[in-house]
Design a protein around this nucleic acid. Structure first.
Ligand SMILES: [Mn+2]
Ligand SMILES: [Mn+2]
Ligand SMILES: [Zn+2]
Ligand SMILES: [Zn+2]
Lengths: 154, 154
DNA sequence: TCTGAAACTGAAAACCGTTTTCAGTTTCGC
DNA sequence: GCGAAACTGAAAACGGTTTTCAGTTTCAGA
């Protein structure tokens, strides 16, 4: 998993950073959450194991963990600044526009699209940000829409 | 086009709303923008044709136009609250991370990527937001990088 | 083991985009 | 015209995020 504390300790060390008790509490709080979490949510959860933790440190740590790729920022309907554990080096998120549930989507090949953009614009493209949104299976069913089981595409 | 003023006048009227001069200025500002625009950007642009316009009204109007589906809220890596015309010809933007220049990129086929996401997640995907960034030809040349002429991809 | 530099911390203040309040203006059906 | 409802912008309030700052912890090196 990407949120392995030992792994992160190493990555931090390579940048002269330390995985302190406070940062560890932030890390655990995100790892244990089932959905995406906002900075305050992380703050509240992490404080139960580390009561002296400050909100400032939460922000700073979320930023650091995002930089090294351990967390991913997601943009939801309400919370524009929420975080989820990143399960792969590169991935995107799909947000349900009804209930806000977020899932990771790693099976992504943007090569063709990026190539087309390079051809058309002449830009050298170094990054892409992709955010998909729609309706999760649960909300689809609840709305009476026939359920489309994952895996039988094509 | 989705930002037809007459059409919107009708939709507004059905809700007891009016398309005032100020709201019209906001509408036009978004329609004329080549990329997604933030509330302040709209404010600045719209003020040139309607100098007495207030920022408050910009926020209120952007909200209204979103509610009736004329605009879409967009979440980018930087701008968390930006707006685009809802059903403008589908396209994306490529931003130069050095000079900020934006070009449109219409030659986009996300079908394969979206299909893969549907297969992997089971979500019904209704929207996608894609933002590419990199280096424009001018900046590349200025940085001494060999110029890659648009059109000879592959 | 001591020492100094760098990392790290939380409280408080500053910052800044957004929303609310409010008193006045415009629109429109009657 | 008249009145109700829509609409407006300035200013204040709000709330999340970032910065500042003075003190603490960690750790490499002497
Ligand atoms: Mn956002
Ligand atoms: Mn597209
Ligand atoms: Zn859902
Ligand atoms: Zn450039």
């Amino acid at each position: 998993m990407a949120l392995d504390a030992d792994q992160i300790t190493v990555t931090f060390a390579a940048r002269g950073l330390r995985l302190t008790r406070q940062r560890r509490a932030v890390l655990d709080a995100v790892a244990e959450a089932s959905a995406s979490v906002s900075p305050v949510q992380v703050f509240d959860a992490a404080r139960e194991h580390c009561p002296e933790l400050g909100l400032t440190t939460v922000y700073r740590t979320l930023e650091l963990l995002s930089e090294i790729g351990a967390l991913r920022r997601v943009h939801g309907p309400d919370h524009c600044e929420a975080f989820v554990p990143a399960s792969a080096a590169h991935g995107h998120t799909v947000v349900c526009s009804r209930c806000g549930q977020v899932v990771e989507f790693t099976d992504c090949d943007m090569q063709a699209v990026v190539d087309a953009a390079v051809r058309q614009t002449g830009y050298r493209i170094t990054e892409h940000f992709l955010q998909l949104s729609g309706e999760c299976p649960a909300c689809g069913e609840r709305a009476g829409r026939p359920q489309r089981p994952a895996g039988d595409g094509a």
